[in-house]
Design a protein around this nucleic acid. Structure first.
Lengths: 106, 106
DNA sequence: TGCAATGCCTCGAACTTCGATGTATTATAG
DNA sequence: CTATAATACATCGAAGTTCGAGGCATTGCA
């Protein structure tokens, strides 16, 4: 059984990650906390969710990464590509459509 | 790969089914079409989704069913139980919280 | 008589999320 | 100076859903 997030989470991590990276370059560990912080812990995607999504998106060419050392911390920074922006636009639209449809039924 | 609905569908069928049954008694086949119709085909949950969810909800005591023949059609009508109403209230609240959080980030 | 629609059902495939676990390095507290 | 917490990455199996295809039976209609 799931303990933290209920259902309704399918595809959400991907959407939020793309959204965050559209604003600025970030690294995995930072993204995990950013999602938690900016949603007031309503959404909590752990590292076991975020890292695989990051790898998947990079494999699809939606993200690119570069290793950087900041404050003597070695990190892998991800940034969004044009393909990633298109994907984000698509997902955003889809999500809004779906949310609107559901809201109407509620 | 999924052809019809994208992602974002996790738990949505359950939510919509409970919502429909809160208004009136319905049978499986009818629910499949009601979801499609009332969402302008934005959401389409096939029979392969609806029937298992129906059985699951009944198993959990959220729904109860009775066999009825209407217009010489034998149907299994489902109606919501008090437990089902509680579940619907919970799911609705959860969904709204989640949707609000996501909307804020977009 | 044949075909579409109604109505129920189940199965395996595919995909995600989740929590636990592991490793390594750096900062901090005692 | 030493133990512990925090940072940072990663992967694995379990669990839970949705999805499409397929099957079966009956009724309505052409």
């Amino acid at each position: 059984m799931r303990e933290t997030n209920p259902n309704f989470m399918n595809g959400v991590p991907e959407l939020l990650i793309l959204r965050l990276l559209q604003q600025e370059e970030m690294y995995g560990y930072e993204i995990v906390q950013a999602i938690r912080d900016r949603t007031d812990a309503v959404i909590a995607a752990g590292e076991g969710v975020v890292y695989p999504v990051l790898h998947g998106l990079e494999g699809d060419g939606a993200l690119k990464s570069r290793r950087r050392t900041v404050n003597s911390r070695s990190r892998i920074y991800y940034s969004i590509t044009p393909a990633g922006r298109r994907r984000l636009a698509d997902l955003s639209k889809t999500w809004t459509n779906l949310a609107t449809a559901i809201q109407t039924m509620l």
